[in-house]
Simulated assay, not measured.
Amino acid sequence: MKKTVLITGTSTGFGRSAALLFAREGWNVIATMRSPDAGDELARLDNVLVTRLDVQDRGSIEQALAAGLARFGRIDALVNNAGFGLFGVFESLSREKLQEQFDVNVFGVMDVTRAVLPHFRKQRSGLVINISSGAGVFALPMSSAYCASKFALEGFSEALSYELASQNIVVKIVEPGGVLSTDFGKRSGAEASRAAPPEDYAKFLAGAETVFAGLRAGRLATSEEVAEVIFRAATDGTDQLRYVATKDIEPLVKARRETSEPEYIAFMRSRFMFGR
């Protein structure tokens, strides 16, 4: 019997690339997105169901799940991919935008997962893959809201993995960094452009832009390459929890996870504490 995966946020980026890859590898795919009209290419595939799911609309979550089960009969894996980044100095971010950041990146993941778990428990098997970020491992300036949401996702996912092991359900985390071929940066840039920081941050912002321009220039991965890591996580048959998906973040992940706290903080401050 073919396996079935439900993926959120498949209109662009990692989600779209993952949906195409899973379908090409013979899986049934429930490709969900806020606006199904953006899924015409996916909808032309026989083993793909494109349906609406907005992680901020719990009714749409239940409807997408019901549509997927009606079409394919079961769900074997869930990929929580939908998300966005809110960037800018903390003082310039409104409470409303901060709430939206958590509604999408954290509570949306929780709501979709909660909806799928009874089905997984009934069949005594299932896999949840949550798409985190390097920003869920190490913190960067100008990304306090995004880092906070991804740090929360990491903690939620790890804790959940211990609970769900008792139900023969596996939880995994995929951690990508900068990627060339995705619209994620477009929405993130639009969100940041709405927030005008206090003038006192001008020197800091100039230094930050220089550093981040260098990071952007070093991006090596594509959304297709991240999709391959997601697919490997779904099919490698292990209970490995975390997968680093792009090479650009490996030095920072290594610094965070393999050095002492004083060494790590000194390393990060040497790179990111400018404008003093």
Rank of each mutant, 00 (worst) to 15 (best):
M1E: 10
V5D: 00
T8A: 00
S11E: 02
G13Y: 02
A18V: 08
F22M: 06
F22T: 04
F22H: 01
R24S: 15
T32R: 00
M33H: 01
P36E: 01
R44I: 14
L45N: 07
L45T: 10
D46F: 03
N47M: 06
L53I: 12
I61R: 00
G68I: 10
L69P: 00
F72G: 00
F72A: 00
G73P: 04
D76G: 06
L78D: 00
L86Q: 03
K97Y: 09
V106E: 00
V137P: 12
P141F: 08
P141S: 10
S143L: 12
S144Y: 02
A145K: 01
S149H: 04
E154H: 10
S161W: 14
G178R: 01
S181T: 15
D183A: 12
S188A: 15
A190T: 09
R194S: 10
A196Y: 09
E199G: 10
Y201S: 07
A206T: 14
F212I: 05
A213M: 09
S223Q: 06
F231Y: 14
G237Q: 02
D239W: 09
Y243I: 07
V244A: 06
A245M: 02
T246N: 02
E250R: 10
E250M: 11
P251G: 10
E258I: 08
E258H: 13
T259C: 03
E263Y: 05
F267K: 10
S270K: 14
F272M: 09
F274N: 15
G275S: 07
R276I: 14
